[in-house]
Computed example of a mutant assay.
Amino acid sequence: MTVTVGIHDLKVKESFTQVIPVAKAFLHPDYHGGFGGITNDIAVLKLEQKIKMTDKVFPIKLPTHPVKADTPVVVTGWGRTSK
């Protein structure tokens, strides 16, 4: 398993793209996948090496204050958003 950072188009590998092997995956203890649906589908990945931070690869900025429940936000990712 690998993690790819610094990429926004999977068809184009750019000079700042990094592919890093995963040393270990820590799955949610109550993960269940397969027939009947997927639940608790989250994991923490330990990488074999550090991600090199650049002007193109950097952590997202989190809010510095509490966010109200009705505040509009943008969420990105891969996978289904409904059954």
Rank of each mutant, 00 (worst) to 15 (best):
L45S: 09
Q18K: 06
A69N: 13
S82H: 11
D55I: 04
A25E: 12
K68F: 05
V3I: 12
V75G: 05
A69K: 12
K52F: 06
K52Y: 05
T64Y: 01
K24S: 11
V19A: 10
V12A: 03
T2V: 13
V19G: 06
T2L: 07
G33Y: 12
A23V: 09
K11D: 15
N40Y: 13
T39L: 04
V67C: 03
M1N: 13
M1K: 11
R80P: 03
W78R: 06
Q49P: 00
V67H: 05
P72H: 06
P21V: 00
T17H: 10
V73Y: 07
T71S: 12
T17I: 10
T54D: 02
L62C: 00
K83G: 09
W78E: 12
I38K: 14
Q18P: 00
T81Q: 11
E48Q: 13
I7D: 09
D70K: 08
L45D: 13
P59L: 02
D41P: 04
S82N: 14
A25R: 07
P63E: 11
T64V: 11
H65Y: 13
M1W: 12
G77L: 00
R80D: 12
V74R: 07
S15D: 15
V67N: 03
K50Y: 13
V75P: 05
V57F: 04
L27K: 15
K13L: 05
M53K: 11
V75W: 03
S82M: 01
E48C: 01
V44Q: 09
T17N: 10
V12E: 14
R80M: 12
V44F: 10
D41N: 15
L62Q: 03
G77H: 04
I20A: 06
V74K: 11
T4W: 02
P59A: 01
E14V: 08
F35P: 10
A69C: 01
Y31P: 04
Y31A: 08
K13E: 15
S15M: 01
P63V: 05
F58K: 00
T76M: 10
S82L: 08
K68C: 00
V57L: 02
K50T: 12
P72G: 04
L45E: 11
K61A: 13
T71G: 04
F35G: 04
S15Y: 14
K13D: 09
R80A: 14
K46F: 02
L62D: 01
V22D: 12
P21R: 07
